[in-house]
Design a protein around this nucleic acid. Structure first.
Length: 887
RNA sequence: GGGCGGAUAGCUCAGUUGGGAGAGCACCGGCCUUACAAGCCGGGGGUCACAGGUUCAAGCCCUGUUCCGCCUACCA
């Protein structure tokens, strides 16, 4: 094959499209429902159907793709299950915004028409993110794509709801929930983001009912006082020990409310008197239950004051606060206002301040479910990687509270519950019941609320595989192998999947959980559209290619640390991809056929060496991926390909390939080059699928797609063991000698075009013989005219000197040597050696070290010390000689 | 309030049975050497946050301190 088939630089775009289409056409991502090969499965964390691919998606899906491709190379039957999430609130918001632009709203449309509009929207725009995942190279089994609102998944949701209800694990009731006045729905505790804000603590006088004096309560939300039904004090509070009054008059409302005693009240805070508003505070709600207090709801679902708020009725809640403070002031009931920084809850979707509000909602009783999830982690059935999250997981699970699952929106799974208008009986069933189970009335009204989107996501690992049917797919792929996701949804999603999986499948949903870090911008700030610091993966792909992006993401996924991302970083890996491309371009110039067997018993040193290094890097990459150490895998691959294969092997192979060492050497080297390049393509394929496929297709003798190759094991095609420490040690000496000559050239300012004459002296027979064998190689790589290897003897008069192991290298500089410069250089070298020796000497002078350290360690230090001594000695002798010549 | 993580070269970070302090980028010097200037060759640069302790030996283990970041929580 001639080189003109490969462009001079790698051009990713056409390549990416071509091979992605080819993979799909060939069905290379298809999983088999049943197979004799080991199963490996991952379910994708379903992106919001409204989403566009952001860098976080790019990361999580790159990691999954790396794993899936790697396991395919290992011959496993891989299922990567794709799909999207209906994202109730987010999607409804998007469609409502669109309706607003059209001058209408969902209420005008009505529920049915609105749902239709959402489906239309979904048909039109819902596949955007799926297509973007394809550009990322994601090797999902697309024929199996699922959507949380699909019929099958909806059936699963209903089934789960009904069963949990029947088991008493789902209940409906009046409780304080987090209410978003803008999204007009309840939120679970997790959907509330707490942020510390500067607010005020208002001290308000509540006059005693008998008209004799007052007590002072403190609150951050004075508007809730309109709904107060008691004032509470701690029975232990000294300040109120002698208090005989039984009630106060609620200011502005002129309602008499009791003074009650409850140990919940913190005597350290405020005045020690707590206003109790059972309808608008979770703690007050509990107190209210303990003391049988009325619940007066003064803030409505729209964020405006209710009829119960008296003259403040219809005021927006924060307006009401202002008006109320003013009113209190004018009546002299406001004792003081203190600044106070305190946590305020916000809606995770729209950032509106959340209102704790009394409301009738559906809940899941999670404690019993959580216990099993905890146990499965404790017993190691599920492993969380990195391990540091395990503790966080336990902390949350031990303190878990019931999960509010009903949402007052329209887009989602409508709760399968019906209320009989005749007798108020609630009927929960899979299908619309014909008649009330209690009174047989046919006048039943279905619950209008829908379920939290996470409720359906929690079923994802088995609902996507056909549950509640017992499908072959479930049999083969459940439990899945690993779940890859960000730690930010450990509670939202991961924990809930565990609970649901264990309850309904009686088996964990996955055996490993890999939690990746969060991506930030280069300053470490969270990326957000409003900050304008987002890195758009599609832009990156346009500019640098998908493989470069993937490589970057993999290389920066060190466990347990946030990833600071910037374009600059991608550039380096783009260069790497291009380097690989050019190395392949060079290789293909010399390769005309493929091979299936390598007789490696008697091959040349560079050939032995590269195979030995290859086998190690293959193992290292595999081991890293087995342990989710993506950065180790990427770096090991990078280091080997660039700095061993390209920098040394390709250069070392040139004399043979250019026919300077005879035909046997040429053929042997072609063969080794072929195997090494082929294996590189395979072990790089999971990280850089496109460029490896492109090269693979041009590699003579390759078959099919690289994604169907077998993960490399050089021992499998070599006649003798590949790992060769002797060859590595010898090659190391050769490369050090070459580097030392290059160093002299650089430091002495000798033009690369001048070919040097070198004499190497050594009293080690083996070294001499190796050096003589590799004479041609050294001459080529160090650009030498002549190289003589001899026993120590007469030193050349005008030469620069380097010491490598047992060899002394003399670079003849007849006529061009600058003695001052050489002295300086030698001094620097001696200094370096001296520093290194100091530490070694200190150890060897320490009796305790010699006595207590393990023998092999002592031996190593001794040997190193000796080598260093000798090196210093030789360098010093040279320096002395030069000084004499100079003088 | 509780918990977790981080502090290593100018920058971003690797560094798990404690025994050689590393990479990428940036920087300096030299090169268009027939795969690659998206490149090649050479080079400089670090009391591993601070203070103690364990050990023959500590970036790594223990204790404390300072500074950052995150998660979590019902102090109104």
């Amino acid at each position: 094959m001639s080189s003109d088939k490969l462009e001079k630089g790698y051009e990713p775009h056409a390549v990416e499209k071509r091979w992605y289409d080819y993979w799909q056409k060939e069905g290379l991502f298809k999983a088999e429902d049943k197979s004799s090969n080991p199963a490996y499965s991952i379910v994708i964390p379903p992106p919001n159907v409204t989403g566009v691919l952001h860098i976080g998606h790019a990361l999580v899906n790159t990691l999954q793709d790396i794993l899936c491709r790697y396991h395919r190379l290992k011959g496993e039957n891989v299922l990567w299950m794709p799909g999207t999430d209906h994202a109730g609130i987010a999607t409804q918001n998007v469609v409502e915004r669109k309706l607003a632009e059209e001058g209408t709203d969902r209420h005008q449309l009505g529920r049915e028409k609105f749902i239709e509009a959402v489906w239309e929207w979904r048909e039109k725009y819902g596949s955007a993110i799926i297509n973007q995942l394809k550009r990322l190279g994601a090797s999902c089994d697309w024929d199996r794509e699922r959507f949380t609102m699909d019929e099958g998944l909806s059936l699963a949701v209903r089934k789960v709801f009904v069963q949990l209800y029947e088991e008493g694990l789902i209940y409906k009731g009046d409780y304080i929930i987090n209410w978003c006045c803008r999204c007009h729905t309840a939120l679970s505790d997790l959907e509330v983001e707490h942020e510390d804000l500067d607010g005020h603590l208002y001290h308000i006088r509540y006059p005693f009912a008998d008209g004799d004096g007052h007590m002072v309560v403190a609150t951050t939300r004075p508007e809730t006082m309109l709904g107060d039904t008691a004032v509470a004090i701690n029975p232990e509070d000294e300040r109120y020990r002698d208090l005989t009054k039984a009630s106060v008059i609620l200011p502005l409302m002129d309602r008499e409310i009791p003074i009650i005693k409850d140990t919940y009240v913190d005597t350290e805070f405020g005045t020690g008197a707590l206003k109790v508003t059972p309808a608008h505070d979770p703690n007050d709600f509990d107190i209210g239950n303990r003391h049988n207090l009325d619940r007066v709801k003064v803030i409505g679902e729209d964020g405006r004051m209710t009829d119960e708020a008296g003259k403040f009725k219809d005021l927006e809640r924060f307006e009401c606060r202002k008006a109320l403070v003013k009113a209190l002031k004018s009546k002299g009931l406001l004792e003081k206002i203190e600044p106070l920084r305190h946590g305020v809850g916000h809606c995770y979707r729209c950032k509106t301040v959340v209102e704790p509000n009394l409301s009738k909602q559906w809940f899941v009783k999670v404690k019993p479910l959580a216990e099993k999830a905890i146990e499965s982690v404790k017993t190691g059935k599920i492993r969380i990687v990195p391990d540091m999250w395990t503790k966080t997981f336990y902390d949350w699970m031990y303190n878990i509270k019931d999960w509010c699952i009903s949402r007052q929106i329209w887009w989602g799974h409508q709760i399968p519950a019906w209320t009989c208008t005749a007798c108020n009986q609630v009927v929960v069933a899979m299908e619309t019941p014909a008649a009330c189970t209690a009174c047989q009335s046919t006048d039943l009204v279905q619950e209008t609320d829908v379920l939290d989107t996470w409720f359906s996501s929690a079923l994802w690992p088995f609902s996507t595989m056909g549950w509640p049917e017992k499908t072959p797919l479930l049999g083969t792929f459940y439990p899945t192998s690993v779940l890859v996701t960000g730690f930010d949804i450990l509670f939202f999603w991961v924990a809930r999947m565990m609970m649901m999986g264990l309850h309904f499948m009686k088996e964990v949903p996955f055996t490993d959980v890999f939690l990746h870090a969060l991506l930030r911008d280069e300053e470490g700030q969270k990326m957000s559209k409003s900050k304008g610091n987002v890195v758009d993966p599609l832009d990156i792909i346009e500019k640098y290619g998908t493989d470069a992006l993937r490589f970057t993401l993999a290389a920066f996924t060190a466990q347990g640390r946030d990833i600071k991302m910037s374009e600059k970083r991608v550039e380096g890996y783009r260069n790497f991809i291009n380097k690989l491309w050019n190395a392949a371009r060079f290789s293909l110039m010399h390769l005309d056929r493929g091979y299936d067997h390598l007789d490696n018993a008697t091959i040349s040193l560079p050939n032995k060496w590269i195979l030995s290094r290859l086998t190690q890097v293959c193992q290292k990459v595999a081991e890293a991926l087995d342990n989710y150490k993506f950065n180790d895998a990427a770096n090991a691959a990078y280091q080997f390909v660039w700095h061993e294969f390209c920098d040394w092997y390709v250069e070392a192979a040139k004399p043979a390939l250019y026919d300077k060492l005879g035909n046997d050497q040429k053929e042997e080297t072609k063969k080794v080059l072929w195997f090494v390049l082929r294996d590189i393509l395979v072990f790089l394929h999971p990280i850089a699928p496109f460029v490896t496929e492109e090269i693979w297709q041009k590699l003579p003798g390759s078959q099919g797609s690289v994604s169907k190759a077998i993960y490399p094991d050089p021992d499998s095609y070599c006649s003798s063991p590949v790992l060769d420490e002797v060859a590595e040690k010898r090659m190391s000496m050769i490369s050090q000698i070459i580097s030392s000559i290059r160093n002299i050239r650089g430091e002495m300012n000798i033009s690369p075009s001048i070919e040097l004459e070198v004499i190497i002296q050594s009293d080690n027979g083996e070294s001499k013989s190796v050096l003589r064998q590799q004479e041609k190689l050294i001459c080529t790589l160090a650009r030498l005219k002549t190289l003589r290897t001899e026993a120590p003897g007469k030193k050349p008069r005008t030469a620069a000197t380097a010491v490598v192991e047992d060899a002394t290298v003399f670079v003849s500089l007849e006529g061009i040597i600058d003695f001052a410069r050489e002295s300086e250089r030698l001094n620097k070298e001696i200094n370096k050696v001296g520093k290194e020796m100091a530490g070694l000497t200190r150890k060897l002078n320490n009796e305790d070290f010699l006595k207590k350290a393990p023998g092999d360690v002592v031996e190593k230090v001794k040997q190193k010390h000796e080598t260093m001594m000798e090196k210093e000695h030789k360098l010093q002798a040279t320096l002395d000689r030069i000084s004499r010549i100079q003088a």
